[in-house]
């Protein structure tokens, strides 16, 4: 059994590097648990669930079983958790309505488009576009409210930057999924490694944001004394 996992790691080392970043992010979240507010709790839930799904995917892959439905499930987890993160972070009721609306559209697409044996058609594309809109709404709220004095040490800004890079980096792969990941004659592994690289970057930014959140809370405590 162990040989199967070793074989997987040697065949897809980049895949496991992204998982390593995911593990790092979960560890960072747990270490800084006492400093997290509600949006960051949901971010921790998101990466914890993603880690569980990634583990299940690895087991499936080791036993050479189809694990594509787990990619679809990851998309659902990401969408639900990020919608909650941004709904809790952004105060504007109009922006919240847009977030809930996009969440609803995605859920409908998920119910229609979900497949057990293949990566869903346009559902993940909708999810990536929704994520980009969430980030734009967050950036807009940052510019309108002007509550943050130093944006570079604001953890949620870096989360949004990470989400934007991750969503734009993987948008085309999932938007044209029929020509990329679902094309039998295509280069599935190349596209998966391409998306995993962005996932790895996203998890790294989340890990970093947990430490930034700790610093932010400490600074507020220090200035309050």
């Amino acid at each position: 059994m162990l040989e199967r996992f070793i074989q997987l790691i040697t065949d897809f080392p980049l895949w496991f590097i992204s998982d390593l970043f995911l593990l790092l992010a979960v560890a960072a979240g747990l270490v800084n648990l006492s400093f997290l507010n509600k949006p960051f709790y949901w971010l921790l839930i998101l990466i914890s669930l993603t880690l569980s799904i990634e583990l299940a995917m690895t087991i499936y892959a080791a036993y050479r079983q189809n694990n594509h439905y787990l990619i679809n499930l990851t998309s659902l987890v990401e969408m639900v958790c990020l919608a909650i993160v941004y709904a809790k972070e952004i105060r504007s009721p109009r922006s919240r309505m847009i977030i809930y609306g996009l969440g609803l559209i995605y859920l409908i697409a998920f119910l229609i488009n979900f497949e057990w044996t293949r990566i869903a058609d346009y559902m993940i594309g909708i999810q990536r576009i929704s994520m980009i809109i969430f980030v734009f709404l967050h950036f807009q709220s940052l510019l309108v409210s002007m509550r943050v004095t130093n944006l570079f040490s604001h953890a949620m800004f870096w989360v949004s930057a990470g989400v934007l890079i991750y969503a734009t980096g993987t948008l085309f792969v999932f938007l044209f999924v029929n020509k990329t990941l679902r094309d039998p004659s295509g280069d599935f592994t190349w596209y998966m490694i391409f998306t995993q690289s962005f996932s790895g970057f996203f998890y790294f930014v989340i890990a970093l944001s947990f430490w930034l959140r700790r610093r932010e809370v400490r600074m507020v405590e220090h200035s309050g004394l």
Binding site: F157, G169, T170, L171, F172, F176, K179, D187
Partner: peptide, 25 residues
């Protein structure tokens, strides 16, 4: 197709980075 995806993604990434820098600035 790989080339188109790579170029398209690169363009999107440049735009995303530009937006992040613009918001921060």
């Amino acid at each position: 197709m790989k080339l188109y995806i790579a170029v398209g993604t690169a363009v999107l990434l440049v735009m995303a980075i530009f937006i992040i820098v613009f918001v921060a600035y």
